[in-house]
Design a protein around this nucleic acid. Structure first.
Lengths: 198, 198
DNA sequence: CTATTATTCGACCGTTCGTTCGAATAATCG
DNA sequence: CGATTATTCGAACGAACGGTCGAATAATAG
């Protein structure tokens, strides 16, 4: 078993199976919630035996981390262009939140997981997880936009961290509260943010 | 054991011990988070044997429900006067959120539990819990204020449910995100809400 | 083909945790 | 004082669950 082509195919199949497992994990999470997502059921939904999951991932935590990393990476890729658009801070800021909302609506289960899991993981040791780098990067960009916006008098003259908390909370409320049915439109987000930012 | 005075004292002592247990539960929750709060540790922190907890409560869930009921009741009592103050919808609405923030700051562990637990309990069967009546009552009052405010042109002409989600999210972000240290002031809340509501 | 390696999987293991048991102690009553 | 009832508690139970084992099967190599 030394053939290069074979090895390539194998690793592709391995990646494909990992993806199937992650899809199953996401489906179970959506159905049962964070704590209700058991390895046995993820295996069942994914169509693998339980032990097979451990052939592809070393632990349940690794499955969740892989999911979070994939989510933050996808989100970040979507945002990268918007972040360096060269527009005014306020317009860039609003564009980013709109883009996030748009991305969220392309895969709600994934992004609900993405924005819910970190709170649940707060009380665990999980600090060095790879996905956190991307989360921090996003917060940093938003924070800088707010600081610029304040300096340029586009935003209210308030503590930047306060504005970030307000915006983050407002966004989270609009996008994630309530049933799936009444999902938010980009226009509504823009209107709300416009009001709040003056 | 039929003496009336004795029976009264007994039931008072029973209530006092229940309160001690609830305090312990809250302390453990604050320290370890929702899922990290184990019965063994609640017993240890409360100063009772584990089995004694089950002499005063029938289950862990009942302990949490009692805590939630107490929290929502306290919050509701604080708000009752404000809700019927007879002021304009906008002023009443802002007063209520300010009052909530003020109340939250009198007992952060309790109210963090209050506002965090419902989300974690979403995926459990727990629907008929007594405390939910008070939660719904609060939401209903806020919703009515928003509808009045819209009708009287004090609020933006938007879907009321959207405004509630935005306000709720913003409030939650301001009050509960970040470390305990940078707790929000009532003035900051008023300023934010004033901006958003126009 | 045989030998070797990769993959799959249900049964099983060890731990954790909510809950209960049964005995021991304290309080109350007549 | 017994006798009865209320209270306390650690030990033990049993279910749930993440993770592992070892055997079975499939894929590949020579």
């Amino acid at each position: 078993m030394e053939n290069t082509a074979t090895t390539d195919r194998k690793s592709a199949e391995r990646a494909a199976r990992q993806k199937l497992i992650l899809q199953g994990a996401l489906a179970v999470f959506k159905e049962k919630g964070l704590e209700g997502a058991k390895i046995d059921e993820i295996a069942r939904v994914s169509g693998f035996g339980k032990a097979t999951l451990y052939y592809y991932f070393t632990s349940k935590e690794e499955i969740f981390n892989a999911l979070l990393l994939h989510g933050w990476l996808s989100l970040w890729r979507e945002l990268e262009e918007t972040a360096v658009g060269g527009d005014s801070p306020k317009r860039t800021f609003i564009s980013m939140l709109k883009k996030i909302a748009e991305t969220v609506n392309t895969d709600r289960p994934l992004y609900e997981f993405l924005f819910q899991a970190p709170k649940a993981f707060t009380h665990e040791e999980n600090q060095k997880a790879e996905w956190k780098a991307y989360q921090n990067r996003l917060y940093k960009v938003l924070m800088e936009l707010i600081e610029q916006g304040i300096a340029e008098r586009e935003f209210p003259q308030m503590e930047p961290r306060l504005i970030l908390k307000a915006m983050g909370g407002l966004f989270h409320g609009l996008v994630f509260w309530g049933s799936d049915r009444d999902s938010i439109t980009e226009n509504e987000i823009e209107e709300m943010l416009g009001n709040l930012l003056g």
